[in-house]
Amino acid sequence: MNTQDVYVVVNASPWNYLVPLYIFFKGLSVGALCISAVYTVFRSERFKTLAFPAAITSLLTFIPVPFLLLADLHQPLRFWHLLVNFNPTSVISWGTWLIILYPLCLLWYIARLGLSQGISIPILKGVQESASTSQGTFGLGLRGLSILTLSLALLADLYTAFLLGVVKGKVLWNSALLPGYFLTSAVVTGAALVLIVYLNKKPEEKTVRTLVRIIQGALALEIFFAISQWITLGATSLQGQKALELLWKDPVYLIGDIFLGILVPLVLLNKPSLNKKPVLMIGALLVILGGLLLRFSIVGVGIQAAGLWN
């Protein structure tokens, strides 16, 4: 028997372009911090010169985040309600505190990192002075502070994946793959931005190669997540199949994220060398574009796919 919808009401979602932009910028910040932490947490000397610019990149890319969040509220002057009405079952409630604590910790981390590398930051002079004493860092060394900041950063990024993942009846979002997918995308976009920043300084060949290898690895992981998502969506239910259909029909996803954001950069970033600076730059820019488009397609198609079923 054929079924044809003649008249179906789906109340419009109030989420617009600000939500994927918010997730994107937060991911950029977290990804850049992950690169900085390669030196401060994992003690890779090769990333020593990269650690500080990566941390500053992380801070600068975080600046739009609170503004995007406020702009997305239709009652922005009531944002303080978030601080006084904590709902433990709401992912946003937890996320609110994470995105307050993360940048504060990041500032502290940058001050401490600058101090360890002999870089004075006038704006953070007071923080740097207090960070020079063990009381000022509550006994935390640079590594301890890095681990704390990185943990907060990872949680601040992951919460958006859970924010989408716990929504009932949104088959595209209800996936255990989503946090890993978002986090990988965050790391890859952050690393790509750090690569652009670093290429404009005095880059070292070995460091660039390692950074590009991280980007390539993360891109490969993204392909794994994408294909896993396709298989599980397509095989488990009719709802999943319809969502997959919509995803594949979305040029933002297929052409934008998969082709321009993953496959083309994998080719461009192959055999990285400082002689191919412009190619590396274009590759990194495409990776960032892909990360942005991924957020748009996952948020947009996720809502659209659920509209077929209510």
Partner: peptide, 20 residues
């Protein structure tokens, strides 16, 4: 008077029964 208009509940309603 308490709602901040974040729209999360609207997105979270599986019946599309809420609107802004």
């Amino acid at each position: 008077k308490r709602c901040i208009g974040c729209g999360y509940c609207i997105v979270a309603c599986p019946y599309s029964a809420r609107y802004l």
